[in-house]
Amino acid sequence: MSSKKLYYNSAYVTEWQTDIHQMLEREDGYYVILKETAFYPHGGGQPCDVGYINGIPVLDVISEEDEVLHKLTRLPNESKVACQIDWNRRFDHMQQHSGQHLLSAVCRDLYQAITVSFHLGTDYATIDVQLPELTLNQLVSIENEANKQIYLNSSIVSYFITQEEVAHLKLVKQPKVTDHIRIVEIKGLEHNACGGTHVSSTGEIGMIKLLKAEKQKGNTRIYFLCGYRALKEFNENQRILGTLSSKFNTGKDEIIDRIEKWENEQKQLQVEIVALKERNNAYAAQELLSSSDGKLIASVFEDKTLKDLQSLAVKLASESNTPVLLATVVENKVILANNSNTSLSCGAFFKEYVGTYNGKGGGSDIIAQAGFQTWEEAFAFYEFTIGQVNENLRAEI
């Protein structure tokens, strides 16, 4: 005898008492089958319910051959148990699933876009509809019509019919089962073969907010939120808008203009910074070149970025006949550059020695770079390189 499924009669049952029909101990955990259950198992794109059986947490609910199995952290000691559904999770799923039925009906009626799949995730829900794309105006029309149907507060009912009775209903998709067929009906709008939990009227959906649409294997995937999820999203957006308004000292209607103005200012500042860095590099290069005596050009900088070091090293190497070794304290990086007038291969040198100092890096014959976990290791490698390269230069003279 299979369990009596209370969620088919009413999705609003949250507490009840019943008997355990069977206890199971499997490799992946403990399961019980109840004489009566309101715990909805995974199915139809809807996640399962969770809650408690005699105070023991219900971890998962699955369906096997028309039986509902409840996975528990341990088996109960009693055969008669008190059960409790996590109502917040249940009602959230009811709002999203009923919202999906309504949204799918609106997509069908407005644009003949038939829903081919539904997914109810933790953060958002999606439907895939049989249209290659939907324009922004079409999405606005869908959202407006869906919310209009919510305000009409049409009743949502469910009932079972036979295979013969299916032929008299206008179903978008034929049911997979041939008997005990459950229909969820939004009065005046649609009939759908569905085993999920739903609210009792469209008004309980609260609202439907479309987030975005994207192409998905020839179809269009619509991301949406219903009810409390939509309210939570609205509140979060208001918080972000409030923070931006405060930072830019302006009303929300002017935020976009202020951000665009700020972006233009930043672009201009970046142009000026690049020009100043190039001028600074030119001065630094001139100073280092003038102090060079034909040996390795080497210098440590406190706050230059790796990009700045690369630019300076390339400039120095192109204007001298000796290798260039530069290091930056702020990033623990070392760069070695060469203009190919010596036999030194920067990349080969780094590959051979950088690991000894817990560094990682490499490069080509004419330039190589390495990063270190600490400045002490970077500086030790820097000093070692000075000694090795100068010794090689003396050997070539």
Rank of each mutant, 00 (worst) to 15 (best):
I240L: 12
Q270I: 11
C107M: 01
T243Q: 12
A327N: 04
E67F: 10
V172K: 14
Q270Y: 09
G99F: 02
Q270C: 04
M1Q: 04
I297Q: 05
I273Y: 08
N390R: 00
I114S: 12
L296P: 01
T73W: 04
V116M: 03
V32E: 03
L134M: 15
Y40F: 15
V157G: 14
K304H: 07
A327W: 01
A82R: 11
G206K: 07
H42E: 07
I114W: 03
F248H: 10
D92I: 00
R239E: 11
L69C: 06
Q17D: 08
L241Y: 06
K170D: 15
K80S: 14
A378N: 06
E133M: 14
L244H: 03
P47C: 07
Q130W: 07
L189S: 11
N249M: 14
F91A: 02
A11L: 02
V129C: 04
Y12G: 03
G188I: 10
S340F: 04
L34T: 06
H21D: 14
Q310M: 12
A282T: 11
K5N: 09
I33D: 05
V314C: 01
A337D: 06
E278G: 02
S141G: 05
S2I: 09
Y30V: 11
G294T: 06
N281Q: 11
Y12F: 11
I56F: 11
R394S: 02
Y382H: 10
K187C: 14
E185D: 11
E391L: 04
Q130V: 12
A313V: 06
W262N: 14
K307T: 15
K277C: 10
V354M: 12
A282H: 14
L309V: 09
I161F: 05
T220E: 02
K315M: 13
Q17K: 03
T202W: 02
L276N: 12
I33T: 09
A167Q: 08
L102T: 02
L244K: 06
H180Q: 15
Q130L: 13
G195C: 11
T356C: 13
E15L: 00
V50K: 07
S79H: 13
M207P: 08
R26C: 01
G29W: 01
Y353T: 09
E133F: 12
L336K: 05
G242N: 07
Q216L: 12
V157D: 15
R239H: 11
F350S: 05
V300A: 07
V13P: 01
F372K: 01
G206D: 09
E67A: 00
Q112E: 05
A193S: 13
E352P: 09
P47N: 05
Q270T: 12
L134A: 11
S79G: 10
A193L: 00
A317I: 01
T115F: 02
A317L: 04
I183A: 08
N137S: 15
N77A: 07
L289T: 09
L139S: 04
G363W: 03
L296K: 08
G43Q: 02
K4L: 12
K217M: 04
K261R: 15
T328F: 04
S299E: 12
T73V: 13
L34K: 08
A337E: 05
G55S: 15
K267F: 13
G294M: 10
N144I: 00
A327T: 05
